[in-house]
């Protein structure tokens, strides 16, 4: 399965990664190789199988509805790159 430079650009955008023209070409090549590896799966007949997403097949545990957390804003914002008035700042979001 081949993949075009446009596909690479589209995926990079979905993943919010910046990718230069040169990197695009390189990525297309390594993608081709990786997809070659991945495509080996297609040889297996899996029609009758249920997908397995967890190795353990038990049920999700449930937590009691209790407020266990206190305000930790000061500690948590000490490691934040940019805060003001208790808010995290980002470049302007345009709706």
């Amino acid at each position: 399965m081949s993949i075009s430079a446009d596909d690479i650009a589209y995926i990079a955008h979905l993943a919010r990664l910046q990718i230069s023209e040169a990197e695009k070409e390189e990525a297309a090549i390594s993608f081709k190789n990786i997809l070659g590896l991945i495509d080996q799966m297609q040889s297996a007949d899996t029609d009758q199988l249920e997908p397995l997403s967890h190795a353990i097949e038990t049920s999700q545990p449930l937590r009691e509805d209790l407020v266990t957390e206190k305000n930790q804003r000061d500690d948590l914002q000490m490691i934040a790159p940019k805060c003001e008035q208790g808010l995290y700042l980002v470049p302007k979001v345009i709706e």
Binding site: I11, I38, M41, L49, P51
Partner: peptide
């Protein structure tokens, strides 16, 4: 995971995982 490839890749891989 992207639209159009999910079944061929992700679901297929989960089935192989079952195998």
């Amino acid at each position: 995971l992207s639209a159009g490839y999910y079944d061929a890749y992700y679901i297929k891989a989960q089935k192989i995982r079952r195998l």
